Amino acid sequence: MQQTITADASAIPAGGVRRRTGSFGDKLFEGLCRGAGVLVLLTLGGIILTLLIGGLPAFTHYGLAFLTSDAWNPVEDHREEYGALVSIFGTVVSAVLAIIFAVPVAFGISFFLTELAPEWLRRPVGTAIELLAAVPSIIYGMWGLFVVVPFVQIYIQLALGDYLTSIPLIGFIFESRSFAGTSLFTAALVLAIMILPFIAATMRDVFLQVPPVYKESAYGLGATRWEVVKGVVLPYTRISVVGGIMLGLGRALGETMAVTFVIGNANRMPQSIFDPSTTIASVIAMEFPESLSGSMKQSALFALGFLLFVISFLVLAASRWLLRSRLKA
């Protein structure tokens, strides 16, 4: 053994540093990875800069009134009045409602697939959930227009409208004079179905990553399945679960075609969740092709796109802050 060590030591150059094999490949790989990261930052910066420059005339002309005005009159009285309040409100409310609808269902699906479903059923149901993510958004929009809109109109607004409006304190949010079926509620329902596979798949995958010994220990102490999920699985996976929810929220905030089909595209402030409204993405999709290059209308649409980016960034920043505060606690 001593001779072997001596022989190996003699192979080291006199300078005391062994020549690194494959140094060119390592540097090339490091450069490619560094370039990929820089490319992402440059792309993101280019998008932000394009939206900001395009929307700067609208921000300069209207000032803070652009954020607080609900006007959208491109030709009325030969005046151009544009405001972002209605579309911002519709974007945020529809996305939040979609999360409220989707998260409990996604958790139920994940709980069923990881704790309750037999082995022969887990794969087909899991595959079916993942296939929902592959459906194009325009298909969701067409399906929502011909199926979800009549369902909401007949079985919710007409059948339950009087009961919902009579609920104390919150009944006013269900009181609507429009019974067309296209509304904030319908858009949120379609969005919830669209983001459901993203949240459910993420929850299922992270639930399966919990070490079995943790759950078996809890079962050994007499815990029920719900107590195991509540006390072991959710605390262990809370960061990934929140990440999946934020992924779904980001998809809901930026969805365009499906929302355009079912929200009603009315540029007025809704009085209830059953009133038609609009979102930033649907306004841009509907009116950008008709806007003239360099016009104030086009600048207002660029400004709306910039505001959508800001909203998405604030949501992501808030989620990061919540996660860090929970980790420190």
Results as ranks from 00 to 15, higher is better:
G231M: 12
V232W: 08
V233I: 12
L234D: 11
Y236P: 08
T237L: 07
T237P: 05
I239L: 12
S240P: 07
S240T: 14
S240M: 15
V241Y: 00
V242C: 04
I245R: 01
M246E: 02
L247G: 03
L249E: 01
G250K: 03
R251E: 09
A252T: 04
A252Y: 01
G254P: 08
E255F: 02
T256Q: 07
T256H: 04
M257H: 03
V259Y: 10
V259G: 11
V262L: 12
V262G: 07
N265Q: 13
A266P: 14
N267F: 15
M269W: 13
S272H: 03
S272P: 04
F274M: 03
D275G: 07
P276S: 14
P276A: 10
S277T: 10
S277P: 07
S277A: 14
T278K: 11
T279V: 09
I280M: 08
I280K: 00
A281E: 09
A285W: 03
A285S: 09
E287H: 11
F288S: 08
E290Q: 15
E290G: 10
S291N: 14
S291P: 09
L292A: 12
S293Q: 11
G294I: 05
L301K: 04
L301E: 10
L301A: 06
F302Y: 12
F302C: 13
F302R: 15
F302P: 10
L307F: 11
L308D: 04
V310M: 15
S312G: 04
F313I: 11
A317T: 05
S319H: 00
S319N: 03
W321K: 04
L322V: 05
L322W: 07
L322I: 07
L323T: 14
L323A: 10
R324C: 00
S325P: 02
S325V: 13
S325H: 09
R326S: 04
K328H: 13
A329D: 09
